[in-house]
Each structure stands twice: as structure tokens, then as C-alpha cells.
């Protein structure tokens, strides 16, 4: 059974994977997003994710619908963690099951890119030398076509 969830608990990766298993699937692609310590010169100590949970879950569901429109036989589950996370903690898990492998890679990539565009989740980085909400530090992440633009990596 597909599911789309915001949680403040540790994510059970296996549970996300098993949720998309079905006899028609010949591939399950799993994306795991983790907390990165170094971004260029910046050293992250920890980070805090905040969400508008009810809307975020709706937007995750919407991503699932968009995926189904492009890859009709694909099953998707997405779980995003919020709260305080340490280096290497799992922040997001996406599991995509499909009859053949190509669609599972494509749909998984699509899901993570869309999360960075339309899902109301915010990350606050705590660095060795300060802290900042990510996404608006340059004040130039303008919205286009009614949805937030992708964060620059």
C-alpha cells in the first residue's frame, strides 16, 4: 500500500520498501536522503527540518499522482522526517516499484526533484560558524509557474 508521510520519528526504511512490493513489480528503487556534513567549505553540525505537515503530506500525495500520470504502472511511497537530525541521519526515503527498472529510476529521480520544489518542508542548518534557514539565504530563489524553484546545491 503506497503511503506519503511526514514523521518526527526515525524512518523505517524497510517498511517504506515493503509498502510498494507487489507481484507485478520487477524492480524497487530506493532513494535515501541523508544529512551531509560538508557543503563546500561549510561544516554542518546538525540540522532541523520543519514542515507544514498536513499540506506537505498532500503535496507528497500529489507527487505520487504526477508519477502515476507519467509512469502508469509505478507504485510510490515517500516518507520525510522532521525535527532535529544529526550527520548521516536519514531525512527522506522514496521507494518506487515498477515492472521494469528504467521507470523506477526515472520516477524516483522525479520524486526527489519535486520534493525540493513543491513540498512545504524547510531545513535549518547549524554550522560550526552560524545557522541559517536554507532556501532563501540568497533572496533570489524566486518562484516560477506557481511552485517553488529548486534549491541550489
Amino acid at each position: 500500500m503506497e503511503y506519503y508521510k511526514i514523521t518526527s520519528e526515525e524512518i523505517d526504511v524497510n517498511q517504506v520498501i515493503t509498502s510498494v512490493i507487489r507481484p507485478e513489480a520487477g524492480a524497487i528503487n530506493t532513494f535515501i536522503g541523508t544529512v551531509r556534513e560538508f557543503t563546500g567549505e561549510k561544516q554542518t553540525v546538525s540540522l532541523q527540518y520543519e514542515a507544514y505537515p498536513s499540506m506537505a503530506e498532500k503535496q507528497l500525495k500529489r507527487i505520487g499522482i504526477e508519477i502515476r500520470e507519467q509512469w502508469p504502472n509505478v507504485q510510490t511511497s515517500i516518507v520525510h522526517r522532521i525535527g532535529k537530525l544529526a550527520i548521516s541521519d536519514i531525512a527522506v526515503v522514496i521507494a518506487v516499484a515498477s515492472p521494469h527498472r528504467a521507470e523506477s529510476y526515472e520516477a524516483s529521480r522525479y520524486a526527489i526533484e519535486r520534493i525540493k520544489e513543491i513540498v512545504p518542508i524547510w531545513k535549518k542548518e547549524y554550522w560550526t560558524d552560524g545557522q541559517e534557514w536554507i532556501g532563501d539565504q540568497l533572496e533570489n530563489t524566486a518562484y516560477k509557474n506557481g511552485a517553488p524553484k529548486e534549491e541550489k546545491e
Binding site: 536522503g33 514542515a51 499540506m55 512545504p120 524547510w122 532556501g135 532563501d136 517553488p148
Partner: peptide
Amino acid sequence: MTAINEEYAEEDQIINDRDVVAFIPPVSGG
């Protein structure tokens, strides 16, 4: 961005009585 009742809304969309309006700064999940 602005959301009305958990859906993204345009600048000219009308806010009605009892609506829940949320301001959504650039997101950074994932």
C-alpha cells in the same frame, strides 16, 4: 508562496471567511 486551505494560491485569489492562509517561503526539503 501562499497557500489557501493547504493548496498553493495565486496573488489574485480571494481569501474567504474561515480560510487558513499559509505563507510558504522557499522550500528546502529532501
